[in-house]
Design a protein around this nucleic acid. Structure first.
Length: 920
RNA sequence: GGGCGGAUAGCUCAGUUGGUUAGAGCGCAUCUUUUACAAAGAUGAGGUCGCAGGUUCGAGUCCUGUUCCGCCCACCA
C-alpha cells in the first residue's frame, strides 16, 4: 500500500514548504539547552553561529544560498550530534543601501529627502523596512535555514542600538574615538564620507598633463605633471628630490600657482621619484593622500578647493562654482593660452571609484569621527597568531595579518540619515558631551542648549558588535553568558576586512574574548564561465529560479545571459532546494570561487530523485514483508557483510571529514556510496535475497533499513528536505513492520533531531574483498555480453572455477544468475577445473570464468584477448618485482609494502589462470 | 611594487598528513523502456595532472624557477 502512496518522482515543490513549517512549528530550531527554559545545564557546551546579517534591502542571491547551505549544514550536523545548537538570525540596516531605496521612492513621488525633513524621512525608512524587510527572511527559509527565529535581531532595533551606543561611549572614554579634520574619501554624489575599504581602484585610460610651474622673479620654471589639473588650484608646494641636479637649485624658491599666481614654496622631499614623469611633483595636501603626508612632513598649508558636491569653491578664484571636471578643462585651456602647457600624453590612471554605484571618489579634507585602530588591531592580530582564532582556509590568516599590520584609522561617521546617530552633543562653546543617556546639559560647561551631531555611524560599526550584541550585550544576559563566544563565523572572503576583522577587534575589546574560534570563508559564486554575476553582464542567476523553475519570459525579463537561454530554451526546470544546496556544498572548496554550472544542479536533482526511489523501494518492501518463519537467526550473506562493512567505513569517514571542515568531500563520499554501491549493487542483490525465504526477506529488509537510515542521517545536513520526507516514510513503515526494524533506542520523531550515526559494525576486510571479486565477475560477464552483442533477453550458460572463493560464489549464486543474466540450470560453480576449458574464457583475478556463447565465434578468437591480458599482467608483475627488489621494500612502511606484495601475488595467480586457459 | 589563488578527461570540478593502474558530474558512443528510479540501467572511449628542474624508494600532492588567467593589498604625480 505504501508503495502506491509514494509518487514515482520526488515532488520537492510541495514537500519543502510543508516540512519547513513543520520543523519550525515543532520548535526544532530552538537550542535543546536554553537558559530561559527549565532543566538548563550551563555545563553543556553549545554550538553557535551568528548569521551574516543580510541587508534589509536584500534580494536572495547565490551568495545567500552559499552561506545558508554551509551554515545550515554545520548547524544541522551539530544538532544531530546532540550539541545544543543555536543559529541567530537577523538583518543589517545597511545605511547607504537602504537610504537610497527610500530616496528613490521619494523621487518617484516627486519629492526629496531634504524637502521631507530628517524625522519624517527616517520614519519613511522604517515604514519601508517594516514592509519589505522581512522578505529576505522568507527567502532564507526557502533555503532551509534552521535558525531560531524567536531570537531574530536587527542592527537598528532597540537592544542593538543600545549596544552601539555603549560601544561608542566606551571607546570615546578610552580615547580611542576622536573627531577632527582629516583627508578622507568623499562621495560627491551621496555627499558623505566613506571608508578606505569602500573605495575601489580601477585602471582606466586617461591623460598625464605636463605643465610649467613658474619661479617667482625669474623666467625659469619647473616642469610638473599631473593627472588632475583642477587640483592645481589647491597646490601649496612644489616638491623635488633633494639630490636632483636638475632642480635642487630651486629648493627654497617661490613658485607661482598657474592662473591664480598664488605664491607657494619649492621644497625638497625624498619621496619624489626622479625617474617618473618630469621628476618634480606638485603638492595638493587637500586632495591627495600622498600629498597630504608630504604636507604633514613640511608643515604645508592644507587647502580645500572643492565643496561637498565636488564643485570648485572660493579658493578656486575664477573657476568657483564649476564642477571639478569642467574646471579641469577650463583651467587647462587658460593655462594653454598663458603658455604654461608643455604637453599631454596618454596615461593609464588608477581611478578611485565608489564601491556603491561607481562614481568617482574625491579625496578631501573633512571633519569626521575616527576610531584609533592601532591598539585594537594589535590585539586582534595576536588572537589569530596565537591560534585562539583559526581561519579556514589557512592562507587567509596571512591576508588578515597583512591588513591589520598596515591598518589606518577608521572613519566611522557618515553624512546620512539612516543609521545609528552619533551619540555626541555639542554646546555653543563647542564642548563635546558623550553619554549613554541623552544629556540635558553640557558635561564641561553645563550649558543646557545642546545639539546632537547630525551624522550616523558606518554600518559596519554596528555589525562589528553582532556576535554579542545579538545575545543581549551590554547586559549580562543569560544568553550572552551561555552562548557567547560563538563557535564558527562563516562568510565570504570578500568581507574579511569589512566585517570579520572588525568583529574580532570589537569582540576582544568589549568582551575580552574572541567572538568565535573558527572563521570559515567561502568563495564567490560566479557564472558558468567564471565571471562575476552582475546585472550589467546580464548573467545573474536567481536561486529561486533554480529551486522553483523559471519560464523563459521570466529569464528574459531579468536580462539574464544568452547562456541560460541557449541551454534552457524552454526555461529552467524546477530543481529544488536540496539540489542547489548539494551542488554548492560539494562543488566548492573553502576560499575558492565557484563557477556554478546548472548541469551540476540538474545532476544533483537526479541524485535527490535517486534517493527518493531507492527509499521508495525499501519502504515498499517493508510494507509487503512476509511474517517471520520459525528460525529467525540467519547468518548474514556475503552481500550483507559487505554493505554493512562499507557503511561502517563511510560513517566513520564522513564524520572525520565533517570534523575536519571538509564538507564537500564528506558529501561526495556519501553520494558515491549511496548511488554507486547501495543502490547499484546491494539493492539489486537484495531483490534476490528477499525472494529466497521469509526469514531471509526479513533479514535483508533489516540491512536495507539500517543502511538507508544511516545514509539519510548522513545526508540530512546537505539535503534536508528529501531526507526528512523519506525518513518519515521509512520510520512509519519500519514501525509498522515491527520492533526489529528500529534502532535500539527507538525512532526519534524527526530526522532533523535524530542522532548522527556512529559505525555499528566492524569492518570485515574479507567481506570487502569477496564482494569486490563477485562484482568483478559480474562486470566481466556483462562486458562480454555487450562486446558480443548478446541480446538482452537471452540467458547464458557459464562455468566458474572459483578456487578458494568457492563459498562466496556458491552463496551468491542466485544473485550472480540475476545480475549477470546467467542460465541457472546451466551454471556450474567449482573449486577447480577438471576438463578442458570450453566457452569464452575470462579471467578475473584468481577466478576463471567460461561463458558459453552458442552463436558466437569459436574459442580460437579469444586467444588475442587472453594474450593481451597476459601481457598486461606480466607488465604489472615485472613492475612490482622491480619495485619490491629495490629500496622500496626496505624503506617504505610495512603496510604499504604488504599491499604491493598482495597485489603481486594476485597477479601471479592471474597469470597462472591465463596460461592455463591459453593451454600453456 | 608586494601578496594570494587557479591551471587535472571535450566542458564544470573533486582529489588535506607524498604510496606507485588519477576520480565524479555533464557531454560522447553502443545497447536496454526487466515490477525503486528513463531525472534510469548496462558497457565503453577519453587524462605524459600548465612547463622545466629538484627532494624522495615513490610526486597531481613537497621545494625552486617559469608561463598564462584571476583576485587582494599598495601614497609613482
Amino acid at each position: 500500500m505504501s508503495r502506491e502512496s509514494l509518487p514515482k518522482t520526488f515532488d520537492f515543490q510541495s514537500v519543502e514548504r510543508r516540512l519547513y513549517r513543520w520543523w519550525e512549528k515543532n520548535g526544532y530550531f530552538r537550542p535543546t539547552n536554553d537558559p530561559a527554559r527549565p532543566g538548563f545545564d550551563p555545563a553543556r557546551k553549545p554550538f553557535v553561529i551568528a548569521i551574516p546579517p543580510p541587508n534589509v534591502t536584500g534580494e536572495l542571491h547565490l551568495g545567500h544560498a552559499m552561506f545558508v547551505s554551509i551554515e545550515d549544514l554545520l548547524v544541522r550536523y551539530h544538532r544531530m550530534r546532540g550539541v545544543p545548537t543555536l543559529w541567530v538570525p537577523g538583518a543589517d540596516h545597511a545605511g547607504i543601501a537602504t537610504q537610497l531605496q527610500v530616496e528613490r521612492l521619494l523621487e518617484r513621488e516627486g519629492t526629496r529627502r531634504e524637502a521631507v525633513g530628517r524625522e519624517k524621512f527616517v520614519e519613511r525608512v522604517w515604514e519601508w523596512k517594516r514592509k519589505y524587510g522581512g522578505i529576505i527572511f522568507d527567502q532564507l527559509r526557502r533555503l532551509g535555514a534552521s535558525c531560531d527565529w524567536e531570537r531574530e535581531r536587527f542592527t537598528l532595533d532597540e537592544g542593538l542600538s543600545r549596544a552601539v551606543r555603549e560601544a561608542f561611549v566606551r571607546l570615546y572614554e578610552k580615547g580611542l574615538i576622536y573627531r577632527g579634520p582629516r583627508l578622507i574619501n568623499w562621495s560627491p554624489g551621496l555627499r558623505t564620507a566613506v571608508s578606505d575599504l569602500e573605495v575601489e581602484y580601477s585602471e582606466e585610460p586617461g591623460t598625464l598633463y605636463h605643465f610649467k610651474y613658474r619661479i617667482k622673479g625669474s623666467t625659469d620654471f619647473i616642469p610638473v605633471a599631473t593627472t588632475r589639473p583642477e587640483t592645481i588650484l589647491g597646490d601649496t608646494a612644489v616638491a623635488v628630490h633633494p639630490e636632483d641636479d636638475r632642480y635642487k637649485r630651486f629648493v627654497g624658491a617661490t613658485a607661482l600657482v598657474p592662473i591664480l599666481d598664488r605664491e607657494i614654496p619649492v621644497i625638497a622631499d625624498e619621496s619624489v621619484v626622479r625617474e617618473f614623469a618630469t621628476g618634480a611633483l606638485k603638492i595638493t595636501p587637500g586632495h591627495d593622500a600622498t600629498d597630504y603626508a608630504v604636507g604633514q612632513r613640511h608643515g604645508l598649508q592644507v587647502l580645500s578647493v572643492l565643496d561637498e558636491a565636488a564643485r570648485v569653491n572660493a579658493h578656486g578664484g575664477p573657476y568657483q562654482g564649476l564642477d571639478r571636471f569642467e574646471a579641469r578643462g577650463r583651467l587647462w585651456e587658460d593655462m594653454r593660452h598663458a603658455g604654461l602647457v608643455i604637453k599631454e600624453e596618454p596615461y593609464t590612471l588608477n581611478i578611485p571609484r565608489s564601491q556603491r554605484g561607481g562614481e568617482i571618489i574625491e579625496p578631501m579634507i573633512s571633519t569626521q569621527w575616527f576610531v584609533r585602530i592601532q591598539p585594537l588591531a594589535e590585539v586582534a592580530l595576536a588572537a589569530v597568531r596565537d591560534e585562539r582564532i583559526r581561519i579556514i582556509p589557512e592562507r587567509f590568516e596571512k591576508v588578515y595579518a597583512n591588513w591589520l599590520e598596515n591598518i589606518q584609522d577608521w572613519c566611522i561617521s557618515r553624512q546620512l540619515w539612516w543609521g545609528h546617530r552619533i551619540p555626541v552633543w555639542y554646546c555653543p562653546q563647542g564642548h563635546q558631551t558623550v553619554t549613554r543617556q541623552d544629556p540635558e546639559r553640557c558635561s564641561t560647561c553645563g550649558a543646557d542648549h545642546l545639539e546632537q551631531d547630525p551624522d550616523v555611524l558606518d554600518t559596519w560599526f554596528s555589525s562589528g558588535l553582532w556576535p554579542f550584541s545579538t545575545l543581549g550585550w551590554p547586559d549580562q544576559t543569560a544568553d550572552l553568558a551561555y552562548f557567547y563566544p560563538t563557535s564558527v563565523l562563516e562568510t565570504g572572503y570578500d568581507i574579511l576586512f569589512f566585517w570579520v576583522a572588525r568583529m574580532i577587534m570589537m569582540g576582544l575589546e568589549f568582551t575580552g574574548r574572541p567572538p568565535f574560534h573558527t572563521v570559515y570563508l567561502h568563495g564567490l559564486v560566479r557564472d558558468g564561465r567564471g565571471r562575476k554575476m552582475s546585472k550589467s553582464l546580464g548573467n545573474v542567476l536567481d536561486p529561486r529560479w533554480v529551486m522553483d523553475g523559471a519560464t523563459i519570459e521570466q529569464i528574459r525579463e531579468a536580462g539574464t545571459s544568452q547562456e541560460v537561454e541557449e541551454a534552457y530554451p524552454k526555461g529552467l526546470p524546477a530543481m529544488g532546494t536540496d539540489a542547489l544546496r548539494f551542488t554548492l556544498l560539494t562543488s566548492a572548496s573553502p576560499g575558492n570561487d565557484l563557477n556554478l554550472s546548472l548541469d551540476r544542479v540538474e545532476a544533483n536533482r537526479n541524485f535527490a530523485n535517486k534517493l527518493w526511489n531507492a527509499g521508495r523501494f525499501v519502504v515498499g518492501n517493508l510494507a509487503g514483508l512476509p511474517p517471520a518463519g520459525s528460525s529467525s537467526a540467519l547468518p548474514p550473506t556475503p552481500a550483507d557483510r559487505w554493505i554493512l562493512s562499507r557503511l561502517a567505513q563511510v560513517v566513520a569517514e564522513a564524520t572525520r571529514l565533517m570534523e575536519a571542515y571538509q564538507f564537500g568531500e564528506a558529501g561526495r563520499q556519501v553520494y558515491e556510496f549511496f548511488w554507486g554501491e547501495f543502490a547499484d549493487w546491494y539493492l539489486e542483490v537484495s531483490k534476490v535475497q528477499m525472494a529466497e525465504s521469509a526469514d531471509r526477506a526479513r533479514h535483508t529488509a533489516r540491512v536495507l533499513v539500517t543502511t538507508l537510515d544511516a545514509c539519510l542521517r548522513l545526508l540530512h545536513p546537505f539535503t534536508p528536505f528529501v531526507t526528512e520526507e523519506l525518513w518519515g516514510n521509512l520510520r512509519r513503515a519500519a514501525i509498522a513492520a515491527g520492533d526489529e526494524f528500529g534502532p535500539r533506542e527507538g525512532w526519534p520523531e524527526a530526522l532533523i533531531i535524530a542522532p548522527w550515526p556512529t559505525p555499528q559494525h566492524s569492518v570485515d576486510d574479507n567481506a570487502l574483498a569477496d564482494f569486490a571479486l563477485f562484482a568483478d565477475v559480474v562486470r566481466a560477464i556483462r562486458n562480454l555480453r555487450t562486446e558480443r552483442k548478446v541480446p538482452t533477453g537471452s540467458r547464458l550458460a557459464a562455468r566458474i572455477v572459483a578456487g578458494r572463493a568457492l563459498p562466496v560464489f556458491e552463496a551468491m549464486r542466485p544473485a550472480l544468475i540475476t545480475l549477470a543474466h546467467l542460465d541457472g540450470q546451466r551454471l556450474e560453480i567449482a573449486a577447480s577445473g577438471q576438463d578442458t576449458p570450453h566457452g569464452v574464457p575470462l579471467t578475473v583475478g584468481p577466478v576463471e570464468v567460461h561463458v558459453m556463447l552458442e552463436a558466437a565465434g569459436g574459442q580460437a578468437s579469444e586467444r588475442p584477448r587472453l594474450e593481451a591480458e597476459l601481457r598486461d599482467v606480466e607488465a604489472h608483475i615485472e613492475r612490482l618485482e622491480k619495485l619490491l627488489a629495490g629500496d622500496f621494500a626496505a624503506r617504505a612502511p610495512a603496510a604499504i609494502v604488504g599491499k604491493e606484495r598482495e597485489k603481486l601475488a594476485a597477479h601471479h595467480e592471474t597469470r597462472a589462470r591465463l596460461k592455463h586457459q591459453l593451454g600453456e
